[in-house]
Design a protein around this nucleic acid. Structure first.
Lengths: 245, 245
DNA sequence: CGCCCATTTGAAAAATTTCAAACGTAGTGG
DNA sequence: CCACTACGTTTGAAATTTTTCAAATGGGCG
């Protein structure tokens, strides 16, 4: 198990983005054993039904949670960027109810449950911050449910782009209404509950309306306000410091 | 603030359904101050955007989480029965990103954040169990996303009935493939992302297929296996003891 | 260059919504 | 006890959204 100190610094930064850690807490996090695991696109970090013994901290790349149904149907449940922990819930749920796959080449830092449990027992404030991470996740799920249930295809996709831009901006991966967007139309379709054909048509409409374009796997948002309006976006659910009320 | 010892016993029972509490932990829970709040149908426990100072433990009745959009559109995010804590996440997220309303007459036990925070700091194992409750919630959200994105209206409704039956059965509120079902067609529509008209037609189809009927606000499941198949149901996501792998 | 994969386009089919009206039932007040 | 009302459910027909199927186009890479 090779040490991966940079990965743990990333976790510290992430947790400190909403709170303050004591020196003692920071040291305890740095003492966590972490091994790095590299994934190629399409490869799984964990599979549905597994009982993992680690949690994965995404250090680099994009990953996604998903569930498979009959006849090749796939639902993507969330997308993840550096700093996210897409299987943190396995710490207390045991069996995974979904898979986690790599969308781009990914680097994960694996931290054993055992050590995380010792850490959270010794430092209740760190436990609260990790708990909080899973609660933000749940807030995003709630918002996706709302998007899928009560937004048009157009609004749903606009909403997803707003979310992915803001989440990347919040961790310094984006600025100027431009951000990496490695998703294929298949991924967009499986995330929004639509077909790739329809995604293609809706993206064309978004382009025709001069809201967005793509350029070398980057999303360029040309009219943030109108995209925001089309999405009926309310950033509260992301629980970002910059939008705190 | 009137004491509500029975309510706290319900919480203890709920937490002990997945784990074991020490006598000391049980005593600490019993010492929590809790006041009872009664709601009539349609009334809100908390509203979207609030920063509540308590968490509500549902002691009696049905409640639901929801979000409102423009033009009267409503999305129901989850349903709750006795033992559930639909705003527990406010303990660490501060601002609510949804409302919690009463579907039937409800009794909630309100527990101040302050006392919950002291409890979870002093007893990491209790913290882990409360954390776990929010993680099961998130698992249900993931499954709803999957249902809305990749299941037909028919399958979606079948799935919801399977879930609501099993969750009630797990806490002793249902048995024999029969359970309370106070939802109106409007609620089903807003939960599944469909219209009431379509809900009416799909319920008719489910009745015509002899899968279910209703009788005095009770759901009667006549063919559990076929309902289960129609829903492509996999109970893993509920993380119930009885289905543990 | 040729191949693979993703995207685009068109036309027809299916699922779901919209609008409008009718129906049923339970509760309220005269 | 009946009439009235409010609310929820059902039904029909037309409109809309989205899917399905099939084929064409485009771009990147070995």
């Amino acid at each position: 198990m090779s040490a991966a100190p940079e990965a743990l610094e990333a976790l510290i930064r992430k947790l400190q983005s909403t709170s303050i850690l004591t020196e003692e807490e920071r040291q305890a996090i740095r003492r966590l054993p972490a091994s790095i695991r590299l994934l190629v696109p399409g490869q799984d970090l964990v599979e549905d039904g597994e009982r993992p013994a680690h949690c994965g901290l995404l250090v680099e790349g994009w990953s996604y949670r998903y569930k498979l149904l009959d006849e090749g149907r796939r639902q993507i449940i969330s997308f993840h960027v550096a700093g996210d922990t897409p299987d943190l819930q396995s710490l207390h749920l045991g069996t995974l109810d979904h898979g986690v796959g790599a969308l781009t080449p990914c680097a994960f830092a694996l931290i054993p449950h055992e050590n995380l449990k010792r850490l959270t027992s010794a430092f209740p404030d760190v436990a609260a911050l990790l708990w909080r991470e899973t609660l933000v996740d749940a807030g995003i799920f709630r918002t996706w449910i709302t998007a899928m249930g009560r937004r048009s295809a157009y609004g749903r996709i606009a909403h997803l782009f707003c979310e992915l831009y803001l989440r990347q901006e919040a961790v310094g991966l984006a600025a100027d209404h431009r951000c990496p967007m490695p998703l294929r139309q298949t991924d967009l379709a499986d995330a929004t509950g639509l077909t790739t054909v329809h995604i293609s048509r809706v993206l064309k409409a978004l382009r025709d309306d001069n809201l967005i374009t793509f350029e070398r796997r980057q999303l360029l948002i040309h009219d943030w306000q109108r995209l925001y309006d089309a999405a009926e976006f309310d950033p509260t659910y992301l629980h970002l410091k910059s939008f705190e009320r």
